[in-house]
């Protein structure tokens, strides 16, 4: 872990500051004759073309999904491919919503994601605060327990958790979907690492003022840690929204299905050529919310998901 740390100072904090002095010696060489043909070709081949290709490979399938969601069966079941739909026809969305209770799936996903993420973020804040700022004899042992939990893949636990949750009546309930995922090793780990970097002086000042743990946590630690908390919250929201294997197993009635599971149900009923437009409309409803969240707040999400690569 420590060996990876030489990477971190440069990439995490130094990007902005390091670039300025380094750009100095490089720029004059490049700017010899900025508009020469050789230079232009090199910029295109070495810079823009690979960049555009990489972007298109990602964007085109998603664009295709969006365009196809507006197409009528006649526009899809044809050998004569048309790229643009005839119009912004929302009939596929209507069909998707009426074939299966899509509005219900959407609401269920919203509830599971909101409740699950809120509880997980609060638990992560409380546990991380306790691990960093509260005296306790076995803190290192507890931290190792959390670290190991971080490495246990949830997929391995689905059968025992199914038996446990179904045994206490959680099958086909929203709490049954939410409960097993509530313990959070990832959020605790990430926030603990952040809390450790906080200057002790600000907490000691609050302590001298007579603030107890509860006030120190919410009035000092949380306000100065909002970016890290946002990172944990957003990564949690994304994974709760996309979670598939557990809701798939613990629900078999449409009333409690989440969007990804409901989409599987839609796939079963529309799994013929004419149904592709309807399925693409369903895919849009699952993908677009997260895509919008990602577009707005991607800095935090990327930082959270690539955690460990730069911090070790």
């Amino acid at each position: 872990m420590s060996t990876l740390s030489p990477v971190s100072p440069n990439s995490a904090t130094g990007v902005g500051t390091l670039k300025a002095p380094d750009a100095g010696p490089e720029l004059p060489a490049q700017r010899d004759r900025p508009f020469s043909r050789a230079n232009l070709v090199q910029t295109l081949a070495g810079g823009y073309i690979p960049l555009i290709v990489a972007t298109l490979v990602v964007v085109l399938p998603l664009l295709w999904m969006l365009l196809s969601s507006f197409k009528q069966p006649g526009e899809i079941v044809t050998t004569d491919l048309k790229i643009l739909p005839q119009g912004l026809n929302l009939e596929n969305y209507h069909t998707a919503m009426t074939t299966v209770p899509f509005a219900r799936f959407f609401l269920n996903s919203l509830i599971v994601t909101t409740v699950g993420s809120t509880v997980k973020v609060i638990l992560a804040i409380l546990t991380a605060y306790a691990l960093v700022f509260v005296r306790f004899p076995f803190k290192n042992v507890i931290f190792v327990v959390i670290l190991v939990a971080l490495m246990v893949p949830p997929q391995v636990s689905i059968l025992p958790n199914y038996i446990l949750i179904a045994g206490i009546g959680g099958k086909n309930t929203l709490w049954g979907i939410i409960l097993p995922g509530l313990g959070t090793a990832f959020g605790t780990f990430l926030l603990r690492q952040h809390f450790k970097t906080l200057p002790g002086s600000i907490l000691e000042a609050a302590e001298i003022d007579g603030a107890g743990h509860w006030r120190r946590l919410w009035q000092v630690v949380v306000p100065v840690s909002l970016p890290s908390i946002a990172t944990v919250a957003l990564v949690t929201v994304v994974s709760e929204w996309n979670d598939y294997i557990w809701p798939l197993i613990i629900t078999d009635r449409p009333e409690t299905m989440t969007l990804p599971v409901g989409l599987t149900l839609l796939q079963n009923s529309e799994g013929n050529g004419a149904g592709w437009g309807i399925l693409m409309a369903g895919a849009v409803l699952v993908i677009i919310p997260i895509l919008l969240v990602f577009a707005a707040l991607q800095r935090y999400i990327v930082a959270g998901l690539t955690q460990g690569s730069v911090t070790g």
């Binding site: 990602v58 598939y244 997260i290 990602f294 991607q298």
Partner: peptide, 18 residues
Amino acid sequence: SAVFAPYVLSGVGVGLVW
């Protein structure tokens, strides 16, 4: 951002699109 985006999208949605 564009290249990273598929990583955060629902596997079910992505699977259907492909």
